[in-house]
Write a protein that binds this DNA or RNA. Sequence first.
DNA 1: TTTTTTTACGCAATCGTTCCCGGTATCGTT
DNA 2: AACGATACCGGGAACGATTGCGTAAAAAAA
Lengths: 351, 351
Amino acid sequence: MKFEAVTIKDIARALGLSTSTVSRALRDSYEISQETKKLVLDYAQKINYHPNPIALSLKERRSRSIGMIVCEIANSYFSQVINGAESIAYNRGYNVIIGQSRESFEREMLNLQYLTSRSIDGLIISVSAETKDFTYFKELSQKGMPIVFFDRIVDNVETHKVIVDNYKGAYDATVHLIRNGYRNIATLSNAPVLSIARDRLAGYKAALQDNGLEVKEELIRHCVHGGMLLDEVETAMKELLALTNKPDAMLAGADKLTTGCLRILKAKGLKVPDDMALVGFSNTDLTELLDPPLSVIRQPAFEMGEVATDFLLQLIESKRPVTEFETRVLSTELIVRESSRPVLNKARALV
Amino acid sequence: MKFEAVTIKDIARALGLSTSTVSRALRDSYEISQETKKLVLDYAQKINYHPNPIALSLKERRSRSIGMIVCEIANSYFSQVINGAESIAYNRGYNVIIGQSRESFEREMLNLQYLTSRSIDGLIISVSAETKDFTYFKELSQKGMPIVFFDRIVDNVETHKVIVDNYKGAYDATVHLIRNGYRNIATLSNAPVLSIARDRLAGYKAALQDNGLEVKEELIRHCVHGGMLLDEVETAMKELLALTNKPDAMLAGADKLTTGCLRILKAKGLKVPDDMALVGFSNTDLTELLDPPLSVIRQPAFEMGEVATDFLLQLIESKRPVTEFETRVLSTELIVRESSRPVLNKARALV
DNA sequence: TTTTTTTACGCAATCGTTCCCGGTATCGTT
DNA sequence: AACGATACCGGGAACGATTGCGTAAAAAAA
């Protein structure tokens, strides 16, 4: 089964012209007479001619498609980012090829090789939790492949990046918990190598210290798969709940960690926020319908996709090598709901 | 900025061979000596040669990419389908280009034209709620473009299709509500033109009739945007709640309708299931964490993506025109939770 | 009328790869 | 020694489109 398209040759043959003339007529070249142009244009319209993008790609040595690697599509945050990226790319005549790393370095590399072998013009990526070795990105970048990092960025590759103010997001959320009377705040963090985990953890620690609270290492748990496996969340929670001085609140550092945490607490029969308050990074629009409605730190995911794609297209379409790079930092939004309700007796003491 | 790749010519030049020989050596042709093959292969490995897929596409007249159009990516059901599709496509050397119709016919056509102009080898699609005119699909199919429909299928285009047993899904859920003592069951349905809406509605009606209950048209509400706009859900719910004989249970026919319904009920201060029970089609993994935990009809979304892609690749890679088509019907799963808890006094009367 | 300029078009190379034809050695066979 | 068979390799067209260059005819200038 073949889907046969009309080519410039068909037009040339039908009209008794050369392919060059047809090509030029279609591109409205000055060296083609008005009548010929009209003839060609009308006929092209009639037989529904569309230039073959593959032939163009071969000629122009650009595919007009960009690669995008995320952990997983079925994640509200990433699907919103993809959404934003698609919207920009589509308008500029590019298409987005999506790959999923599923937090695995191996799958990330596989996707990367696949995408580059499909001759993409550029790459947008949020690295996997397992990725410790960034030399491949560096090499790729040095060979001239335009790359934009978002969300989970890497420090030692110089290029455009898009993130949110993870430090402030975590800081504000932690302060919010403290203000509401919580004193023993634990955190569920991503793999320590990830930029987002580092920044969020730093914000968490700073908020504690700025409010005269001690940073206790036993209250900091890392889930190296970012909550993709419920097991690791369960283990972390078990450890926290086994402490003699149990935490009274949780700060969860990722979408799956937030919902995973709630899931485990429910399974253990603990009440949120009475037994344990919860605030987490999340972009699902269902958080307000949860039991209890969840306080969340929300990221402008769609906008991140837009900015990342805009950055990438700037790099791709730049005539000269770009040497000045920007790291765009967007703001998070703290949405306060039931899951971090004030502890009355303690809250008063602080205010 | 250009990302320069090595070509077969580079190898030929470096080794003092012709491009034909190099090409043949790489493809392990019998008419190339072992030594030459080894020479070429080793060198290709060394300089990290990868065949240019664009040149191959031009030659073979196939792009090895397939188009996929869904309503929106940021929807748990569709993102799971995409996931399944990607997994199969990736393994068979294809990539998936995704387009979003956002329930708009115009955007659907735009995406379709874009995808076909990007010379895709085939198309997987779940049509938008606005799509009433299927001639374009028919034409495309007749011109030889392999198409597979899933979820929202169209009747008058003969090709492979993948659906779930929507009739049975809705039937079972409705029977479940009846068994649990609910007697005045309303339903929130998709646009009436959609196959899924028709089938689910039919299942709902049959369940009522088979259990001696009357089908009341005033209890059937259609949301033409499938719940994408909360407004339409709110309007529908308002109308239902304004009835003298208010419904005591709801069957929601789509992901966004289910959560939208819960959202509205909560906003109106109604208790689920005491004031109104709720069962709905949904594929989010958060439904059990909602307040109350939601009874849902779950679709094997990932598998649907797999099957659809497998079907499509069969069509694409078939030597002869395919004339026998299959409509694969997968099973839904009814997951019973709190939101449809038995009404004690009534439930007993029935059992 | 002759020369120059302009107009309008065709030829052929190019992008990277495959593949149909050839062509030339090197054998073995008679 | 002559022939055919086999093994091995290169030339060049093709895929669809663009584009530099060449050139005929028409128009303008001399």
